[in-house]
């Protein structure tokens, strides 16, 4: 079925796109970056991080660009002062939720959270750090899971389920006590469903899932192994 071309406005600029795309995709096609974190090309979107929120006008609710389809005549605002302020708060919340200490993180310099924070000018946080006491799972031979760096974007959960089809990962608990678990909340090494493919590690935007043996700053995620690396890097900025 040939896709119908439609036009929408993004921050006032007329953009031509095709029906069925999300606002996030349409914007990217037009060379406009809407910050995103839980979105990853090739995975089903869940609209969880709320960074990609855009304003569709009319005083209605803000809509996540990653899950909202384009519609003829839509007028999308992606960078109002309110949106920018909200995005900064979201990053402040993520940075204080767990223990993101970049200077000792394997993903330092290659972390999507860090990159967004610097792109959006989050240089300090106004909320107290929670400093939760969270475990590391070092049981697996090649990979580690460091809960301290996890932002619960569930990209690993989805890549494992949607792409690898293994369903190793899930989230237990709720609210602030949500935790990533492997299989039935057992050590990763004893998760029988794991195929050791490493897709989760390459999909993780931070240093939460990493390859063993990497030192600080050494963990460069090969997200392209799952989708296209170039796309990802630009999307982050």
């Amino acid at each position: 079925m040939p896709q119908k071309r439609i036009s929408i406005r993004i921050d006032g600029e007329l953009v031509s796109t095709v029906e069925g795309k999300t606002i996030l995709e349409a914007a990217r096609d037009a060379g406009r970056r809407i910050p995103s974190l839980c979105h990853m090309d090739g995975l089903t979107d869940v609209g969880a991080c709320r960074l990609c929120l855009v304003d569709l006008g009319g005083g209605g609710r803000l809509a996540p660009a990653c899950t909202t389809p384009v519609q003829e005549g839509q007028a999308v605002i992606t960078n109002s002062p309110r949106l920018l302020a909200y995005r900064r708060v979201i990053l402040e919340l993520l940075l204080t939720e767990r223990n993101h200490i970049c200077s000792v993180c394997v993903a330092n310099g290659n972390c999507e959270l860090q990159a967004l924070a610097s792109a959006l000018g989050v240089t300090s946080v106004r909320f107290p750090y929670r400093y939760p006491n969270l475990p590391l799972d070092l049981s697996r031979d090649r990979f580690v899971l460091d809960q301290n760096r996890c932002i619960l974007c569930t990209r690993c959960v989805r890549v494992c389920a949607d792409v690898e089809g293994a369903h190793v990962w899930d989230v237990k608990g709720r609210g602030i006590y949500s935790r990533l678990i492997s299989d039935l909340d057992q050590p990763w090494a004893s998760a029988a469903s794991c195929t050791d493919c490493g897709k989760c590690v390459q999909s993780c935007p931070t240093g939460a899932l990493a390859e063993k043996g990497k030192a600080v700053e050494e963990m460069v995620k090969q997200t392209w192994q799952v989708t296209n690396a170039a796309e990802r890097k630009r999307a982050v900025l």
């Binding site: 709320r50 708060v89 979201i90 993520l94 939720e97 932002i151 608990g173 609210g175 602030i176 949500s178």
Partner: peptide, 14 residues
């Protein structure tokens, strides 16, 4: 809070 989205999960905690 189910904990899925950031504002509700972390925001309410703050």
């Amino acid at each position: 809070s189910c904990g899925k989205c950031v504002p509700c999960r972390v925001g309410l905690d703050k």
